[in-house]
Computed example of a mutant assay.
Amino acid sequence: MSTATSVQIAESRVDARFAELKAQGRAGLVTFITAGDPDAETTYQILRALPEAGADLIEIGMPFSDPMADGPAIQASSQRALKNGISLAKTLEIVHRFRAEDSTTPVILMGYYNPIYHMGVEKFLRLARDAGVDGLIIVDLPPEEDRELCLPAIDAGLHWIRLATPTTDDKRLPKVLENTSGFLYYVSILGITGTRAAAAEEVGAAIERIKRHSDLPVAVGFGIRTPEHAAAIGKVADAAVVGSAIVERIAEALDENGKAGTGLVDSVTELIRDLRTGLDR
């Protein structure tokens, strides 16, 4: 079966990180947090703590009022962020601040097209590139809409990271892989984020099929909550993506007014260290 040709992005932190992980013989840990949850400063403090705690790549959610693919935990985090005045511009400012301290950890923005459309594609891509963003995952733009944002993003030097699901069959997969670079995000279950988990055996079989079409690294997400599950996924995938469990840990550390408690950052980093330990077993 033919292998899709990968899009090449110059001086890619994503490619460099996956090459490093492969050389070390270990699976990557991709962590997700929502920008501005519960506030911009706390997001920044979490961001700067994630790499040392064990995160290899960081996904940052762009808050949106109607996150249709996300489960209750991530929906709630988006609402908290919007309530506290976060915007796409402020999200990019947080990334820019983080990048001034960390020049190697890949940062991927994940979300929906609407906020980008309202900012303007050209302006967004310029600000994202200047801030040090490495790639985009935009869940509501299928390959048929690549002219909207995908192709301009690639021209701007950003990875376009696509989602594949258990229903992405061999006929559809080549189209999904078209213009995809950095890695492929395999959604291991059908439905919304954070609801249940897929068995490692099922995921392994899906990844084998994907690898017959592409040499891209495959990161697996949706439903990974424990070090044990991360370890199982890490044995069959190039990386494990954890989002809802982290966002829930943030929510648990908020005070009665929805503000960051004193131990919030430490609580999140403890979870990341546990996940990293699980992956390294």
Results as ranks from 00 to 15, higher is better:
residue 241 V to S: 11
residue 45 Q to L: 13
residue 199 A to I: 09
residue 205 A to Q: 15
residue 31 T to F: 02
residue 83 K to V: 08
residue 172 R to D: 12
residue 113 Y to E: 01
residue 159 H to R: 08
residue 177 L to A: 02
residue 87 S to F: 06
residue 202 E to M: 12
residue 150 C to M: 15
residue 69 A to I: 12
residue 30 V to I: 11
residue 6 S to K: 14
residue 3 T to H: 13
residue 145 E to G: 11
residue 91 T to H: 00
residue 232 A to K: 04
residue 206 A to Y: 07
residue 66 D to K: 08
residue 249 R to Q: 15
residue 130 D to A: 13
residue 198 A to H: 09
residue 68 M to R: 12
residue 215 D to K: 13
residue 120 G to F: 08
residue 141 L to T: 06
residue 4 A to R: 08
residue 273 R to L: 11
residue 169 D to P: 01
residue 207 I to D: 02
residue 60 I to R: 03
residue 79 Q to V: 09
residue 281 R to T: 14
residue 254 L to W: 09
residue 165 T to I: 05
residue 98 F to S: 07
residue 241 V to I: 14
residue 276 R to C: 03
residue 122 E to Q: 15
residue 264 L to R: 01
residue 75 Q to R: 14
residue 14 V to S: 06
residue 65 S to E: 03
residue 12 S to F: 11
residue 250 I to G: 07
residue 162 R to G: 00
residue 74 I to A: 00
residue 93 E to T: 01
residue 82 L to D: 11
residue 237 A to W: 00
residue 183 F to R: 02
residue 140 D to G: 07
residue 115 P to Q: 08
residue 219 A to V: 00
residue 136 L to N: 02
residue 137 I to M: 00
residue 166 P to S: 01
residue 148 E to N: 10
residue 94 I to N: 12
residue 201 E to M: 02
residue 224 I to Y: 01
residue 181 S to K: 10
residue 163 L to Q: 10
residue 37 D to C: 06
residue 156 A to V: 07
residue 81 A to P: 10
residue 160 W to F: 08
residue 129 R to P: 14
residue 72 P to I: 05
residue 190 L to K: 11
residue 200 A to W: 01
residue 276 R to P: 00
residue 247 V to E: 06
residue 53 A to D: 04
residue 87 S to Q: 11
residue 137 I to K: 06
residue 201 E to F: 10
residue 96 H to C: 11
residue 97 R to W: 06
residue 93 E to A: 14
residue 67 P to L: 00
residue 122 E to R: 15
residue 240 A to D: 01
residue 252 E to K: 15
residue 92 L to R: 03
residue 257 N to D: 15
residue 157 G to N: 08
residue 101 E to K: 12
residue 248 E to P: 14
residue 201 E to H: 13
residue 237 A to H: 05
residue 30 V to H: 06
residue 236 V to A: 04
residue 102 D to N: 14
residue 132 G to R: 02
residue 265 V to P: 04
residue 123 K to W: 09
residue 87 S to H: 07
residue 253 A to P: 09
residue 270 E to H: 10
residue 236 V to H: 00
residue 119 M to K: 08
residue 270 E to P: 03
residue 130 D to N: 12
residue 39 D to A: 10
residue 121 V to T: 09
residue 142 P to I: 00
residue 16 A to P: 01
residue 156 A to C: 04
residue 237 A to T: 00
residue 26 R to L: 03
residue 57 L to T: 01
residue 97 R to V: 05
residue 54 G to P: 02
residue 29 L to Y: 03
residue 138 I to G: 07
residue 177 L to S: 06
residue 239 A to V: 09
residue 246 I to Q: 03
residue 253 A to F: 03
residue 34 T to C: 03
residue 183 F to C: 03
residue 141 L to Q: 09
residue 60 I to W: 10
residue 280 D to Y: 05
residue 74 I to T: 04
residue 93 E to R: 09
residue 95 V to R: 07
residue 128 A to E: 11
residue 194 G to N: 07
residue 193 T to I: 03
residue 137 I to V: 08
residue 40 A to Q: 13
residue 3 T to S: 14
residue 189 I to H: 05
residue 232 A to H: 04
residue 256 E to K: 15
residue 66 D to M: 05
residue 34 T to S: 09
residue 80 R to Q: 10
residue 146 D to C: 11
residue 99 R to S: 02
residue 201 E to C: 07
residue 263 G to K: 14
residue 41 E to K: 14
residue 272 I to H: 03
